[in-house]
Design a protein around this nucleic acid. Structure first.
Lengths: 302, 302
DNA sequence: TTCGAAAATTTGTCCTAGACAAACTGGATG
DNA sequence: CATCCAGTTTGTCTAGGACAAATTTTCGAA
């Protein structure tokens, strides 16, 4: 019964901290201090991995590693989220009781009750309202709960998986076929979040666009090729709020070079709220923006 | 008009070759030879990135990097797949004409025609047969075409995305609720392929199991917690044929320690065909195995 | 006191270059 | 033809140094 231990690659996988960072922290801060196996290679005991995971979580919430590592163990109380500025309260004001109820079903791990409640809401509100007033605020809500540490990883996965299904099911009932504009929907590598993409797809399809969903994490080269092959009028990318904002301008820059001249580039999602305007790229921080952008496109492409 | 160039992180992202490997190849084989920017950091021109992407594709098909790098440019003709042993011809013998037709629709980028054809097949065959005789062989077919290089990345993404939708839609029509056994379905980090998971979910749900889908790429820790929280009878993992087989025993070993004693661990998919038996893990190389495993579980849990 | 610019710090990523184990290849032998 | 062994190939790990970008702190002026 050897207690399990983790090599550096396993720790990178489980914590999301790169090997470079793990070695650098050890050098700089004296934590983590893994054992060494027969080949002199790092071998992390589970407690240290657990602590690293906690630290990473708090870092994602806006804390700084130097402080966190210095804190002994009562950091558990430092769970207070920092980034969650109470700014984007747009449509869901007052309804957060309802959101809390939905979230509670997830936390009770009752998937079928959650699905049922959501399907009821969809039937009552209609797809557009359902997305804008329920799914979008709920997704934000979940993101905040996650940052605050009040949601387990697997609970977030369950939420995402079930909500994906709801949206895809709703999309499949919409008319398909050749319509205008033709929009390729995807996300860049390192951006695995798909819910924003699905919400956008549903709204755009409702507006009469032909959506070509390519899933997440397309290499930039391939996005260019796909736009060409599908003769896309628009390439729409989704960036979640968790995506590092500083990387976005560079990615959009590179991509705009790779796209055919006939394709527009749209970038939406919580990740682009604070990105500066760029030539050749349309920024759509909210779902409303996406809807009105379609109207704009129609006006200029008779 | 500066031609775009890529730093080492961008190349890692676009090619899937790690920074370590890129530096090592440069040292050993003299390729790639990136330029250096003002800070002495590597800056890869697009041609080299393109060549690297090609090399990576051929490596995934079973070729070795040393040879590939030495080959000048007529490697384009070396596209012949190697790994695709013509062994797993089980149920789809004779029907590959039909599969080719479906694949052709994807290559014409005609998503709606593909969806329509598949929905017709589903209606004709029923869900179980549809999965075993159409979806599974088609997925293998696509995997082989991908290895052979006759399918673009974005075409594979389109196939995956549309097929996911079909399966999820079919699953959502099955009865939910509390049934037995209760099965948590997911995959390990670095295993993003979801189709096998969905096929398994559909078949298991048909057999009367309660499936809890958690999506792909769950950290091992979290899989253990999820099993506990959902009081899962079974944790089922999916490994695609593309997953490095040598890593599987270690992962299963680590995971079996993390699971509650009351949960069984099942591992299925093309990735486990050549994995050696282990104590405490049920291996299910084919979908048929999964179906009969449910019957076996029922027999031992009255 | 409040604002904004400059200085100091924190932090991640990149660099070189060496070592070694695991996986694969090609024989030689039973 | 199967099996084992030696030689090669290949990826990943290690160490410590450097530096730029981001953030915090300090300081001077309004």
């Amino acid at each position: 019964m050897n207690s399990p231990s983790f090599n550096i690659a396993a720790v990178e996988r489980d914590t999301g901290l790169s090997k470079d960072v793990l070695r650098m922290w050890e050098r700089r801060y004296g934590f983590p201090v893994p054992n060494r196996d027969g080949n002199g290679e790092r071998s992390y005991p589970p407690e240290q991995v657990e602590r690293l995971r906690l630290i990473k979580r708090l870092m994602d919430a806006g804390h700084r590693p130097g402080k966190l590592i210095a804190t002994p163990a009562e950091e558990l109380s430092a769970l207070a989220p920092r980034r969650s500025a109470p700014n984007t309260v747009i449509r869901d004001a007052g309804a957060s009781g309802e959101l809390d109820e939905l979230l509670a079903l997830i936390k009770q791990h009752d998937g079928s009750a959650y699905l049922q409640a959501m399907q009821q809401l969809l039937a009552r509100q209609g797809l557009q309202q359902f997305i804008q007033d329920t799914v979008a605020p709920l997704t934000r809500h979940v993101g905040e709960a996650w940052e605050a540490g009040s949601l387990e990883v697997f609970e977030e996965h369950l939420f995402t998986e079930l909500t994906k299904r709801l949206l895809r099911q709703a999309i499949s009932t919409l008319p398909g076929g050749k319509r205008k504009p033709r929009i390729v929907l995807t996300s860049v590598p390192d951006e695995p979040h798909v819910l924003g993409l699905l919400m956008a797809e549903a709204l755009l399809a409702l507006e009469g666009a032909e959506c070509i969903p390519l899933g997440t994490q397309m290499p930039l080269f391939e996005i260019g090729r796909a736009a060409e092959a599908h003769r896309a009028d628009i390439v729409a990318l989704s960036f979640s709020a968790a995506f590092p904002q500083r990387r976005i301008p560079g990615l959009l820059q590179q991509l705009s070079v790779l796209l055919p001249a006939t394709s527009e580039l749209w970038a939406g999602g919580g990740g682009v709220t604070r990105v500066a305007k760029m030539a050749g790229v349309v920024l759509l921080p909210t779902l409303d923006d996406a809807v009105s952008a379609i109207a704009g496109w129609r006006a200029t492409h008779p």
